[in-house]
């Protein structure tokens, strides 16, 4: 690469990366700094360095309970997404061909690219007491049923699965599509039946895509706050809403920053643990 070329590459790259620095990397650094302060360093406020925020965030039993609750919520949402998404991806990738596959694939992916908040709101309409689902079930069943799913953990899981299911379908679809048909033909001609082919051949080969999808679901759900607020109501307090409160209600930004960084640490551990599978899935 000549000097002129290097200069041109630099000129092309600089604006985008400067923007990312100002809007993402410096803010994350600032948040790290804030998490060690006693108060926000604005105006003439007194502030000093401290580890108290982390001590508080890690020892307060309420916070620990909420983190555990968020991890459990993310676990169940991920499990449901994988259980529902894998068959769907399998059918799309290996059983349907041509134009109808293209259309169906787009239909499955489309909601994921539409407004997340609006989709959660639409579940609120369906699930609310005496709402559409209640009426529909009562119209079919002869006895009186009170579903009352709204403002429960079930409602949160349903809304979150709805939001993130397309991720798992997308990543699993990609790795299922890459499986060579001749491998499956070979297994079949050697006398393997479908359950065995699925268990010994297709599932292992689809694993990188499944893991990538699971990570893509788990990470945002641990930090979710809007879905728990709207669908969980009173029971919808999570680690995410705890952090939200520090910034918009309690205005304890240093504590909020420490809580955010603990969440980030959890996320990074998960990403690191899954990185071999993620690397396989992207190549």
């Amino acid at each position: 690469m000549t000097g002129a070329e290097r200069l041109r590459a630099l000129g092309l790259l600089a604006p985008a990366y400067l923007w990312l620095t100002v809007a993402v990397f410096l803010p994350l650094s600032a948040m790290a700094f804030f998490s060690f302060l006693t108060d926000v360093p604005f105006g003439d406020r007194e502030w000093a360095f401290t580890f108290d925020n982390y001590a508080q965030a890690l020892t307060n039993p309420t916070y620990a309970t909420l983190l555990w609750k968020s991890l459990k919520l993310a676990f169940w949402v991920t499990v449901w997404c994988v259980v529902l998404g894998f068959p769907c991806a399998y059918i799309l990738a290996r059983m349907i061909k041509g134009r109808s596959r293209e259309v169906l694939f787009l239909l499955v992916i489309l909601p994921f690219w539409s407004n997340a908040l609006v989709r959660v709101f639409s579940w609120a309409i369906v699930l609310r007491g005496n709402g559409v689902l209640d009426r529909a079930v009562n119209a079919v069943l002869p006895w009186d049923v009170k579903l009352n799913l709204m403002f429960s953990e079930t409602a949160m899981v349903i809304g979150l699965v709805h939001s993130y299911l397309p991720y798992v379908i997308l990543t699993t679809y990609l790795s299922l599509q890459a499986i060579d048909d001749t491998v499956i033909e070979a297994a079949r001609s050697l006398g393997a039946r479908f359950p065995r082919i699925l268990w010994r051949l297709i599932l292992p080969l689809a694993m990188p895509g499944l893991i990538a999808g699971a990570v893509l679901v788990f990470v945002p759900v641990v930090g979710s706050f809007m879905e728990p607020r709207l669908l969980g109501g009173r029971v919808g307090t999570t680690y995410g809403t705890l952090i939200e409160d520090q910034f918009v209600a309690v205005f304890n930004w240093p504590l909020g920053a420490a809580l955010s960084f603990i969440l980030l640490a959890v996320v990074l551990v998960i990403l690191a643990a899954a990185s071999p599978a993620l690397r396989k899935a992207t190549t």
């Binding site: 994350l28 955010s260 969440l263």
Partner: peptide, 20 residues
């Protein structure tokens, strides 16, 4: 990072930095 870090963290970090 802009894709993988939960938006809650990115958003609050931006709020802190832009205020600063």
């Amino acid at each position: 990072p802009p894709i993988a870090v939960p938006w809650l963290i990115t958003g609050t970090a931006m709020l802190i930095f832009f205020f600063g």
